[in-house]
């Protein structure tokens, strides 16, 4: 089987400071991988390098494109990479306002990616937007409301709908449940799990919340000071961590 995403030696420096160093892994279709580590461990830098938001100093991010097979997205042309960003890739920001257009209605937010890939039939766009609002459990009657009138959890679900409407194959998530109430978090996690299973999505989730990765991720990468210190099956890394830092991380979680 060809990996959907194959990351080789991704390195990013900020001056003399290491953002992330020599990270490599393969992600296969349908796999969900979690990246955990404390603030400043380089997990967000890595995510942004992979998603094309940051140019890495070294390394390759090879994506198995629909038309041309595996291609390095670091060296591909910018239009091509941005096109991936609107079609096969999705990016869910921690703060919904970074990923939504707050001045545009919910329907317009969901429809934007469709229009960006050439959809020009208003009725169809609106029907698909409404369908997606329903799938993320937002009342279809709110299709014309702006996200400023939505709660935090609804905004996050709207952001997910907006990202998934073009049927991407790979979703990058940066702390998708951060800043939400626990009850809202649980609902969102359940929703994400269902969507990942039903759409056969692959996902890379950056978070510092070990409970989130236990529920969502098949695999786990533990980062510290820009480097991957341990990687493996999620429950194995969490229940039998091998590296000193992973052990510290796992033992630091408060038991409820």
């Amino acid at each position: 089987m060809t990996p959907l995403l194959s990351v080789h030696g991704i390195t990013k420096h900020y001056g003399t400071h290491i953002g992330c160093a020599d990270v490599s892994f393969d992600l296969y279709p349908g796999e969900v991988m979690g990246i955990v580590g404390e603030s400043g461990s380089g997990k967000s830098t890595l995510l942004n390098c992979m998603a094309g938001h940051l140019a890495p100093d070294a390394g390759a991010v090879v994506f198995d494109t629909r038309t041309d097979g595996p291609k390095d997205t670091v060296t591909m042309s910018e239009p091509e990479r941005r096109m991936l960003g609107r079609t096969d890739w999705a990016f869910v920001h921690q703060h919904a306002r970074d990923g939504l257009r707050m001045g545009v209605s919910a329907g317009g937010n969901v429809g934007e990616r469709l229009m960006a890939v050439g959809e020009r039939h208003y009725g169809d766009i609106r029907n698909r937007a409404t369908d997606w609002l329903d799938r993320v459990e937002i009342d279809a009657g709110r299709v014309d409301d702006r996200p400023t009138t939505f709660s935090g959890g609804m905004q996050q679900r709207l952001q997910i709908a907006r990202n998934l409407v073009t049927g991407p194959r790979l979703v990058f998530m940066d702390e998708p449940t951060g800043g939400l109430d626990v009850s809202v978090q649980a609902r969102l996690l359940d929703l994400l799990r269902g969507l990942v299973r039903d759409m056969g999505l692959s996902a890379i989730i950056v978070t510092h919340d070990l409970a989130v990765v236990r529920l969502l991720a098949d695999r786990l990468m533990v980062m510290k000071s820009g480097r991957v210190v341990e990687a493996g099956l999620t429950d194995q890394v969490l229940d039998d961590p091998q590296h000193a830092y992973s052990q510290l991380l796992v033992s630091s979680v408060l038991q409820v």
Binding site: P79, R86, R101, V104, S105, G107, A116, V117, D144
Partner: peptide, 18 residues
């Protein structure tokens, strides 16, 4: 420069929806 004009239609979409 990249001919990414989907946003222009978002404006028209908003018009029709409103």
């Amino acid at each position: 420069s990249l001919e990414e004009y989907g946003l222009m239609h978002v404006k028209l979409y908003e018009d029709i929806s409103r």
